[in-house]
Design a binder for these strands. Structure first.
Length: 276
DNA sequence: AGTGTATCCTGCAGGC
DNA sequence: TGCCTGCAGGATACAC
């Protein structure tokens, strides 16, 4: 999906506009993105006031009145747009859910592949869901030592480990590749083979690339758009992701692509040696 | 515990 | 032009 920087970008754009508005009407164009029937979903949202907009991992979380939470996971191709009634933009294709707001406004969810998911949860349910997710990588509470200790408990490849939302929340395939490149760690290295110093470099790499990507409003490969419909600008700053065959920016050795865990992994074979 | 595989679904690029 | 294959920011379920 949209990974942490893309979701953070959307949340920051929605935050000034949504709180204080009510959900006046809900239209479901594609029940695929729901877990419940459209009438149930509509009933869960009807009349609710939006109190806050937050992010947890890759989830957009709208706090609603009556202690409910609308949790949006964008899957691979989900888009959440706040349509300005005064300045009609190009409507995205593949509409899935439309929320008509009061006062005037429309929150529009579109999703080409419909892997996304919209759920309305109680406070207890959301707390439980959130507790399943790993720590927020940008929160200072997460230390290199914490990371190293967690890594020692797993023998899975570090790239797969980083993609597991129960380990660290919000990192996806793009930023896992970029963070491992910056840390000089081969994506296939076992998590428990990462030394303490490497864990420190990895955490720094994760934070640096996430911050820079947020600054650029995310990476648009094809579908991702900000809440106002703009593409993200981080694409040209990617150093290895999607760059198989291109020279490593540091050493000029061609970037390689391998596949494991059903996903492509990109790395520099010179700067990220598999073993020492 | 970890991994390979399949699934959900559509669109696009590239090869022939 | 058209047909085919492979590939894509995710998450989950399954058999080994």
């Amino acid at each position: 999906m949209p990974e942490l920087p893309e979701v953070e970008t959307i949340v920051r754009q929605l935050r000034p506009g949504l709180p204080g508005r009510r959900i006046r009407q809900t239209a479901v164009h594609h029940p695929d993105v729901l877990e419940v029937s459209p009438p149930t979903f509509q009933g869960q949202l009807q009349g609710a006031e939006i109190l806050a907009v937050d992010r947890r991992g890759k989830n957009i979380v709208l706090s609603l009145s009556a202690n409910r939470f609308l949790v949006v996971n964008l899957g691979m191709t989900g888009r959440l747009h706040l349509l300005d009634p005064e300045a009609p933009t190009d409507l995205p294709s593949h509409p899935a859910v439309t929320l008509s707001l009061q006062p005037e406004g429309t929150l529009f969810y579109a999703d080409v592949r419909r892997f996304g998911l919209l759920r309305v949860l109680s406070a207890v349910e959301w707390k439980r869901e959130s507790a399943r997710l790993g720590p927020e990588p940008l929160e200072p509470a997460l230390t290199a030592e914490d990371l190293h200790i967690a890594l020692m408990r797993s023998r899975s490849p570090i790239r797969s480990w980083l993609l597991d939302q129960e380990k660290v929340a919000g990192v996806g395939n793009i930023y896992a590749a970029e963070a491992l490149y910056r840390a000089g760690i081969h994506p296939r290295r076992a998590a428990n083979s990462i030394a303490q110093g490497e864990a420190g470099r990895l955490l720094k790499g994760i934070r640096a690339v996430l911050r820079e990507a947020i600054e650029a409003r995310g990476t648009t490969l094809r579908d991702y758009r900000t809440a106002s419909g703009e593409p993200g600008n981080f694409g040209p700053a990617l150093r290895v992701y999607g760059r198989a065959g291109e020279p490593c920016p540091r050493c000029k050795v061609p970037v390689e692509r391998i596949v494991f865990g059903n996903r492509s992994a990109f790395f520099c074979p010179h700067c990220q040696p598999e073993s020492f």
